[in-house]
Every structure is written in C-alpha cells, then in structure tokens.
C-alpha cells in the first residue's frame, strides 16, 4: 500500500537525517517504527506526509507517486497523519475540530455517520462536544487528534508518538483503540518511543538508528531479539 524507497532527507547543510531509508506498509497492517530520540522516526512520517521534502528517493502510495505532492494533496489521496504533540485547534470546540477533520469531504450524511462513530470510539469526547479543545486533558486531546484524523476517512493513518506525556493507563486505552481502528479496516503506521507497547499491537516493525533501518521483522520476533530488548525494552 505504501512503499518508501531510499529516501534521503537533509536539514540545513550538515544534518543528514534519513539515509537511504526504505520501508513498506501492506494493506491492513499495523507497522511500527521504533528507535531512540533522533533516530529519524518523525522525519520519516513528516516526509511521507509531505511536510518535509526528501532530496532523493520516492514515496509511492497506492500506485501513486506522492513524493512531490503538497501536504494537502496527500491527505486527499487518503493518507492522514496525527502530528506529534497532537496539534489540536485549542480555541475551537471539540465538534468544530472534528468538522475540520472532514474538511475535504462533501458527503454530509457520511460525515455525520463518521462523527457518530468517533464519538462511540471516544465517549469522553461526546461528553465534551461544545468545550474548547484546549480545556481537554492530555489524553482527551490525543483522542481528539486521532478522531479528527479519522474524520478524513484515511486509508492509511500515521500516528506520531500517541503515548507522549500520557499516564500508563491512558496509553493502554489509546493503543486498544488504535487496534480497534485497525480491525475496522484502516492501515496504521505507528511511530513510538514506547517500543514495548508498540510491538505488542503491531504486526511488523522497523528499528531505526541514526536515520537508517537497522533491523526489520515481525513484531513478535523483534520483541525477542537481544539487541532490541537491551536497547529499547529495558533488558
């Protein structure tokens, strides 16, 4: 479904953030990118979603070359990113945030149906429809960010650090919902620092180190590999 081939990304003159990075995501999968700070996880997602331009390499999504498309065209193609740090519209209400998620869609009935589905998935949001999004707790904001992304009806949903700054119980809740979204038919590319959690729900994983893929396998195998256990899973 998504195929990234040998992308190279530079920041300024000196920093070579991604080095010949390639990865594949198949229809219906949950694929996770794990790695330390600065390994290039977020850069990879930002490159796929068009926020960062690669100097070389290509990104192909459902047989369409999206390497040079602007960010909003990539969303139109069915690929939506939940950005790191959530980036909800703090002064607008929960409801308006979700409506903006459906910005590109015209089918009012289907939008209403999806809105209902998001509220079923996140009952806490339903209780806070008219509240400004900035007054939500961190976990609720993350839920809103995911819900807003779902409103664009993505084929592939990319999540950047959904567990960031959340209490362990909420992290579990978020991951359970991510799995649920996946079962309903949305492919997921997940970037996480919390490697244990990520590998527990993913089908496959890529381990990134200083801008390169150093290992890739099914999630259950990766969770057993010594280097991964030592480096990311705490023994």
């Amino acid at each position: 479904m998504l195929s990234v081939q040998g992308i190279n990304v530079f920041y300024g003159k000196g920093i070579h953030a991604l080095k010949d990075l390639s990865l594949e995501v198949g229809q219906g999968e949950i694929v996770t990118l794990i790695g330390a700070n600065g390994a290039g996880k977020s850069s990879t997602l930002n490159t796929i979603s068009g926020l960062v331009r690669p100097r070389s390499g290509s990104v192909v999504f459902r047989d369409m070359d999206i390497t040079k498309l602007p960010a909003h065209k990539i969303v139109e193609a069915g690929l939506c990113q939940v950005p790191e740090g959530r980036r909800i519209f703090a002064n607008l209400t929960v409801q308006t945030n979700l409506e903006l998620g459906a910005y590109l869609r015209k089918d009012k009935a289907a939008i209403a149906r999806d809105m209902q589905r998001v509220y079923e998935l996140f009952p806490r949001l339903a209780e806070r429809k008219q509240q400004p999004a900035g007054t939500l707790s961190g976990g609720e904001q993350q839920m809103l960010a995911i819900g807003r992304a779902l409103m664009s009806q993505p084929q592939l949903l990319m999540l950047d650090e959904p567990s960031m700054g959340l209490a362990p119980l909420l992290v579990k809740e978020i991951f359970r919902i991510v799995q649920e979204i996946n079962r309903a038919g949305t492919t997921i590319l997940l970037v996480e620092q919390n490697a244990r959690m990520a590998l527990s729900i993913a089908h496959r994983g890529y381990v990134l180190e200083t801008g390169r893929v150093v290992m890739t396998d099914s999630a259950s195998v990766l969770a057993e590999v010594d280097e991964v256990r030592k480096a990311y899973l705490g023994g």
Binding site: S49, L51, P70, A71, H72, V75, E76, C80, Q81, V82, P83, R87, I88, F89, A90, N91, L92, T96, E99, L100, G101, Y103, L104, R148, A149, S152
Partner: peptide, 20 residues
C-alpha cells in the same frame, strides 16, 4: 473555517487537507 484553522495551527490545518 479553513482560515481560522490556519490561525489556530498551520501544520494541523495542512494535515487536515487544507491548502494553507
């Protein structure tokens, strides 16, 4: 709505598919 979304957060707006 697109304009207000840009005011609130430009990156989030473009990830909603808004041509900022």
């Amino acid at each position: 709505r697109a304009c207000v979304a840009i005011r609130e957060d430009e990156i989030a707006a473009s990830s909603m598919g808004i041509n900022t």
